[in-house]
Design a protein around this nucleic acid. Structure first.
Lengths: 339, 339
DNA sequence: AAATTCTATTAGATCGTTCCAAAACGAGTC
DNA sequence: GACTCGTTTTGGAACGATCTAATAGAATTT
């Protein structure tokens, strides 16, 4: 009986093309050493046999597995999802595959998936870390000598000097607050976000710096960063803080929740009560009223992160310790409604 | 000078534990052949040396790489994203890692990423295919003898008999339409979705079967499946089809767009004009008014898909040719507003 | 005491690549 | 004809695990 057809190997290709396996290997690596004529012969043999490269074997001998690990604290959040997707696609375009894992903000799960990635021989890891937990993950990555890039969130205990990159949240907070003032807001609140986390603190610090400069009193209503929280705050603001006429939300989830909360209680947004979000998720433009938001170009950030990491791997270009990418404010009806 | 510390291998572990490398290998594979005492010795040696398993090496010899490929046509869509995430986490829980790729509905990109996954030696592929393109992807997977599961979307030209699974869209269409009738709707429209695609056709067919049974005239307004399309349709329905008092939307994106469109033109939703969505994305519950939607339990579907595939791999349990998982209707204010 | 069974361990081949050092080749130079 | 030289090509040793068949030792049966 016919045994299952074995996958062809470079030896089979070599035989068919009438060269040695070493030559085939050189062709695979696009080495300039091979004569053009030989190269095409080998390529034809590959096509004829339906040869597929076996990366596991290659990886055993050489370092580069062509696999990049991507660890994200909350992939359900469209902001992170968008980042992950554009990063993955950029990697793909340069011939790398991405192992992606969601940690759901759980440091133990994070330790586990990073361990798995190291086992799989990823060439680099891009990490938007869960808060909490020890530095075990960083130590493991360090021990395995795996280039690691921290993104979006800066960890407090970060002992190892892994490079970090994120959009310039602080500047975003400044832009948004300044805009609200320019639109005539007299009392501006900051709503949402979990206290003590780098992202919240940075956005908040931009907000505070602007108010400080004008000697205005801040109003900080941190808590969660969900749509539901935003919705709750709509009522709370109307009831407890009627003088607030401008709101900078921690992110678009909160802002969108706030918008629907306002719709619910019949409060008009855009003129007497202005709302600005953060992240500019796709939905912001389509909300009603359309949401003004700090655009972080997270898709661009994702692909540039991919480039940075691959340049590190392939060309030894070590990234800067800290990179902040520029943000812009997209003004829409929620803060500049037609009067 | 001290050369970079080489990663310890099973040989190092064996030496330290005073056994042969074969024994260490058996321990790694949790073989019951090893004496308990020996096992703990080996485990200790591993811990001492900081040994990490090298899957590339293992994969070279044995088949199972512990890697599963996940190919999704549109990861930006929260429905698919949710699916991918829960699938990945279920895989993770069973010790597998996921290589995830977004194809952006591009058949060529899809062919490319599947090729890359085969190179990486994935043990199985889960595919929500892009429409269009030839069957090359299926042929490649077939040739490489990689167990492949099609999900969520059924391809027309599917030559190879790969198993398929999705929520029971047709039943969902029936449930939603019946509910609208029960709520007193007299004229029900189906809005959104791209014609000719399996998902649209199935949802539509559930809708049509219910109307047919009562000899009612359908009104089908297919087009796109975006929020923007839903918003456009709010105006169109009011202007051109004023008698329509119930709408079944292709998905929640369309429904949510329709809701904001209605908010914009000041049309009340929930009593005289009832709207039902499809997919029950997280946001549906938090929209205003809260959106009635067909709940597909996509998270549950993701993890059960993971289980199915791993049972196939590990225990040889070949999945059924076609599986449809049950759906339920979640009734909220958009179709049952308090009068 | 020899033969049999069972348990626990092991040596050595093997997987499909890459890498190194060496070799083959042709062309030009002495 | 022997030599250097640059360009191509090649054999064979890695890489780090798994797998098969063999083996040593203890327990049981004959």
């Amino acid at each position: 009986m016919p045994r299952a057809a074995r996958r062809p190997t470079i030896v089979d290709v070599a035989q068919k093309a009438g060269v040695s396996k070493s030559t085939v290997s050189l062709v695979l690596q696009q080495s300039p050493l091979v004569r053009a004529e030989t190269r095409t012969q080998v390529r034809e043999a590959m096509a004829d046999l339906g040869y597929v490269y076996n990366r596991a074997a290659a990886n055993l001998r050489s370092a580069n597995a062509g696999l990049i690990g991507l660890v994200i604290n909350d992939l359900r959040n469209p902001f992170f999802a968008q980042f992950a997707i554009s990063l993955q696609m950029a990697l793909s375009a340069r011939g790398y595959a991405a192992v992606i894992a969601n940690t759901d903000e759980d440091p133990n799960l994070q330790a586990q998936v990073v361990e798995a990635m190291i086992e799989h021989g990823v060439s680099a890891v891009i990490l938007s870390s869960a808060y909490g937990g020890d530095d075990g993950v960083f130590e493991a990555l360090n021990r395995a000598a795996i280039p690691t890039m921290q993104v979006l969130r800066k960890m407090a205990g970060q002992i190892t000097g892994f490079p970090f990159a994120s959009p310039d949240y602080r500047e975003g907070g400044r832009l948004a607050t300044t805009h609200l003032l320019d639109q005539g807001a007299k009392k501006i609140a900051f709503v949402g976000g979990l206290e003590g986390r780098s992202v919240t603190e940075e956005r908040l610090s931009g907000y505070l710096s602007v108010l400080d400069a004008r000697a205005m009193e801040p109003l900080i209503l941190t808590g969660r960063s969900s749509r539901g929280f935003g919705r709750e705050m709509a009522r709370k603001l109307e009831d407890d803080y009627p003088d607030v006429d401008g709101v900078l939300c921690f992110n678009d989830q909160v802002a969108l929740g706030l918008l629907s909360g306002c719709a619910e209680i019949g409060r008009r947004v855009g003129t007497d009560f202005k709302v600005v979000g953060f992240d500019d998720v796709e939905e912001a433009a389509e909300a009603w009223p359309a949401l003004t938001s700090v655009h972080c170009d997270i898709a661009g950030f994702g692909s540039s992160t991919a480039e940075t990491v691959l340049d590190w791997l392939e060309n030894g270009m070590v990234p800067k310790t800290e990179t902040r990418t520029p943000v812009t404010l997209i003004v829409r009806d929620s803060s500049a409604g037609t009067n």
